[in-house]
Amino acid sequence: MEMGSFLADLPPEFAPLRVFLQDRFVPYIQLHLEDKGWLKKTEYQDPLPLWSSKMGGYPYLPKSLEYPRDAETGELMMFLLQINCAEVPEIPNFPLPRQGLLQFFVGLNVAMCELSPQRHCIRYIEEIDLDETRLISNFEFTQESRQRNEWYNHIYSLRFRPGEALFFNYRQSMGHLRLPESLQTLCDEFFFDDWLYDYEIENDGLERGHPYKLAGYPDLHSYVPDVLDDAQGQLLLEVQDPFSCSDYFYFFVNPDDLKRQDFSQVESYFMRV
């Protein structure tokens, strides 16, 4: 959503809010998914190159690296997605690496809706080797875990686009955006929350940001305040399972760690609705 459009659409009674809100839009990066089909169960084929930005399918895996396992159980972890960092536009206060691959694996048993003790593995590969002879291309060794834990088999390519949003409801609910008392009184008197709810419906919910994103704030729905109440740092990634739309994943990173390109202390949260 464009900041100017939202501010222009504010009814006259909310005019005093414009000055307060215009400096509080937050930049973020939208992830746009394009359906590329399913993994073929017999041939174990992924339609996308191993180094592409994707959700689902098979990861980029040099033969010099082990496929991630939960350190406590030894179980293989589900490949969720990977981001080719060179394809991601730059936005303020979000120093994502400018090259390499950022990969997200989760220890999710889909059928049981349970995360493994380690919960996730995030791997940053600084240099991408395009020589396929040095990459693992046969992922048949993952099939037993894939079938037993019902890992996602659908595949989506990822594209990236900068955006901005207020994330008003989430920031208000979590105490990240506090209105001056006079403006809060104004909002209560003229039912700003009701107007905003109707506005979101008419504009596809874009006040709260795209549902697949890097940076910004999470979408506020269902049990999000309870699930993310203890989350520390800034939002790194929010995605949901685009096929069933019931599984949500959230990753938070300390801003200083992000500057150092250190993803070892990322916090992850999972929610099924």
Rank of each mutant, 00 (worst) to 15 (best):
R148F: 01
A111E: 13
V266M: 11
K36S: 03
P97G: 07
I122K: 00
L206H: 09
L17Q: 06
L196D: 04
H210I: 05
D70N: 08
P242M: 06
D46C: 13
L96W: 07
W195S: 07
H176S: 02
M77P: 06
R69Q: 12
Q232D: 15
Y197Q: 11
M3Q: 14
L258T: 03
L177N: 10
Q147K: 08
R123V: 09
D257Q: 09
A165Q: 08
Y60F: 13
F25V: 01
E207S: 08
I91E: 05
V88M: 03
T73Y: 04
E127Q: 13
Q147W: 10
I122S: 02
R159I: 00
Y199D: 07
V110Q: 04
Q261D: 05
Y248T: 11
L50E: 04
A215S: 15
M3K: 15
E132I: 10
L48V: 08
S116Q: 12
G56H: 06
P117N: 06
S268V: 04
F252I: 13
D241W: 09
L166M: 03
L31D: 05
D230R: 13
V227E: 12
L108H: 10
G57L: 01
L50R: 10
Y28Q: 10
P11H: 07
Q184S: 13
F6M: 11
L235E: 12
N254E: 15
V227L: 10
D219E: 14
L186Y: 06
A8G: 11
Q265S: 15
K41C: 00
T73G: 08
S173C: 14
K41M: 10
D262I: 07
G74L: 01
Q143A: 12
P12K: 14
A215P: 09
R119G: 00
Q232R: 15
P211L: 08
I122M: 08
L183A: 01
V110F: 08
L158G: 00
I155T: 05
P117H: 04
E202W: 11
E34P: 00
W151K: 02
G209D: 09
R69K: 14
C113V: 15
V110H: 04
L235V: 11
R178F: 03
M77D: 04
Y156N: 12
F141A: 05
E13W: 05
D194N: 11
D70K: 01
E66T: 13
E87A: 01
L186D: 06
P117W: 06
I122R: 01
M78R: 07
R123D: 02
Q265H: 15
Q103K: 06
Q103L: 06
P225M: 09
F160W: 11
P218G: 10
R134I: 06
A86C: 03
F6G: 03
N203M: 05
Y44E: 02
D129T: 14
R123M: 06
Q45T: 15
P92A: 05
Y197G: 01
D230Y: 01
M55V: 01
K36V: 01
V253K: 07
F104V: 00
Y58C: 00
N153R: 09
R159G: 08
F167C: 12
D219N: 15
I155D: 03
M78A: 07
Y248H: 15
Y217L: 07
N93Q: 14
I122E: 06
Q30I: 01
S173A: 14
F14C: 00
S246M: 07
Y58M: 02
L158D: 05
R24I: 07
L61H: 00
E207C: 12
G56T: 05
S173V: 10
T73N: 06
L101Y: 06
S53Q: 01
F190I: 00
M112Y: 09
G4I: 13
